[in-house]
Amino acid sequence: MSTLINAITFIIVALGKAHGAAAGSCDASDYVIDKPRMRVDRVLAAHDTLEFTGAVISLVDKSVNQNACRGSTIRLQYNTTP
């Protein structure tokens, strides 16, 4: 059994502040994914693996203090486009 993967798309689904992080707000809106959709165009069979690159996560430059985001954990979800 195999499946064609045309693209992989990443989204931020959750953010966890680090233990002991500075007071203040930090959520998914503090981050942006540049190039969240990556072309793959590959057929994958059972137990195949796939390496891909392209997406970059950055901290958004806001006018407020973002120290609460230091050390945070970003949870990503990826979806495939057959």
Rank of each mutant, 00 (worst) to 15 (best):
C26N: 08
D34F: 01
L44W: 11
G20I: 01
V43I: 14
T81K: 00
N67L: 07
L50Y: 12
S2W: 05
A18D: 03
D48I: 04
L4K: 09
R39W: 01
V13E: 12
R37K: 14
K17F: 05
A45W: 14
I8V: 14
A55G: 12
A21D: 04
A55H: 10
N79K: 04
V60H: 14
R39V: 04
P82D: 09
C69W: 07
R39C: 00
I8Q: 04
V40W: 07
H19W: 03
L44P: 05
I12M: 01
T80M: 13
A45Q: 13
D41E: 13
D34P: 00
Y31G: 09
V40M: 05
N6W: 00
S29D: 10
S63D: 12
D61C: 06
F10Q: 11
N79C: 07
T73S: 12
F10M: 06
K17V: 00
S72Q: 05
A23W: 02
A22G: 04
Y31P: 06
F52Y: 15
D34W: 00
K62C: 05
T9A: 07
D30P: 01
T80E: 14
T81W: 02
G54S: 13
L59D: 06
A14K: 11
I12F: 07
S72M: 03
S58C: 07
S25V: 08
V43R: 15
A68K: 09
L4M: 12
A23F: 02
I5W: 04
N6H: 12
A45R: 15
R37P: 00
Y78D: 07
S29L: 07
D30A: 11
C26I: 03
R42L: 12
T49Y: 04
T49K: 02
A22N: 14
